[in-house]
């Protein structure tokens, strides 16, 4: 399944599920990443990570290890 790391840059995707638990899951949810939310990959930092995303109209950065846990789909 596609995740936030493997998705194409500058293209709209939608969050399908979160493959994590506990504090990290809560944190990701609180930042607005809930099933159905639109997510766009914007750019990658010079050393390959973190990655900048656009979600709920603001810029959010995550490492690959976190972004991988966000499963996405195209609509």
């Amino acid at each position: 399944m596609l995740n936030a790391v493997t998705m194409e840059t500058n293209r709209e995707y939608y969050v399908k599920a979160l493959a994590c638990t506990g504090a990290l899951r809560r944190r990701i949810i609180d930042m607005g990443i809930t099933p159905g939310a639109k997510i766009i990959k914007k750019r990658v930092a010079p050393f390959g990570e973190p990655i900048e995303f656009r979600v709920r109209d603001y810029a959010l950065s995550m490492r690959k290890s976190e972004a991988e846990l966000i499963k996405v789909e195209e609509k």
Partner: peptide, 9 residues
């Protein structure tokens, strides 16, 4: 630690 950080305007 995890890294989930807002990039404010």
């Amino acid at each position: 630690s995890t890294f989930v950080m807002e990039l404010p305007e």
